[in-house]
Amino acid sequence: MSARENILARIRSANKVAKNPDVIGGTAVDRIKAHPSSPLPTLDWENENHFKLRCHELASSLDQIDSLDHLPKAVNRYLNENDLPKKIVCWPEFADLNWSDENLQMEGRSAVGEDKVGLTGSYCAIAETGTLVMLSGEDQHATTSLLPETHIAVVSRSRILRTMEEAWELIRNETESVPRQVNFISGPSRTADIEMTLVYGAHGPYRVHVIITE
């Protein structure tokens, strides 16, 4: 018999032997179909404010704009404040904004090792944890939020959700099947592997800047 058959057979026989009651009940197929939610945090918060608070705790910086037309100005302001290069790699959806007015060089493609600043959108955001949710896709390159030292992410105010459960529900409703990768990004890359000292920019971005738009 194959390893697969052996393992499954051993699981079945072990589960017959063990006297552990299944406290939740139901079959595997039932639970997957119903995907019931477990207890959620009971604390009350206003999503946008809580999201901002969490971003702050995670060392993500924040800005907000009224419409995407103002994005070039906001991006330029952030780059100037932090003394960052004006050459940016972005998701194609942002490539056609008026970047030249701000003297920004914008390239809509997947990122490579040399790129210093990456601009992405986000599928939604989670207030509970200050998290950006990114789905991989043809024009939503995973590398853009990963390789550059600075990651600027645009979040739509109406898509700031309460919990990860709500994000999953949105994905279930809006996509045919889950994309190759769903990335939950919460602040800049970090490590504390040397003497518990917190250091930003372990392998991913040193900086995450979140711009909330209408």
């Binding site: 995670l58 990768q181 890359s189």
Partner: peptide, 14 residues
């Protein structure tokens, strides 16, 4: 409260 990167992978490149 949350780890920085939670990455869920489903299959290879589409």
């Amino acid at each position: 409260v949350i780890s920085n990167y939670v990455s869920m992978t489903t299959g290879p490149k589409r």
